[in-house]
């Protein structure tokens, strides 16, 4: 049976509110930690946005290299970055 790649849900499927971490467990010894934890800032971004940040770091922050690798123009990459910065500010950077 092929393994299904599960995505981390960021919003409540019922009311769309942002989800928090309530339970963590150790796969090795089954220890559980319960509580009320915020998701790390980067984990609150969409998969596409996280991929963009990884690409940004991998290209040493060069938007020109990123544009070349993605096959798009420089302002297109810069706009994605600017919109991401705006989003990070909104969610409390």
């Amino acid at each position: 049976m092929c393994e299904v790649k599960k995505r981390l849900p960021l919003h409540c499927p019922a009311c769309e509110a942002p989800l928090k971490v309530g339970r963590l467990f150790c796969e090795q010894c089954d220890t559980e930690v319960c509580g009320d934890f915020e998701l790390p800032l980067l984990a609150r971004l969409s998969e596409k946005e996280q991929r963009f940040i990884l690409d940004f770091v991998k290209s040493s922050g060069s938007l020109k290299d990123m544009a070349k690798n993605m096959g798009v123009s420089y302002p297109t990459v810069r706009n994605i970055l600017d919109d991401l910065i705006e989003k990070l500010i909104q969610i409390g950077l």
Binding site: G71, V72, S73, Y74, P75, T76
Partner: peptide
């Protein structure tokens, strides 16, 4: 087309 072309090349 500007999603793919801009800057000096477009100029």
């Amino acid at each position: 087309p500007f999603v793919w072309i801009a800057g000096v090349r477009a100029l």
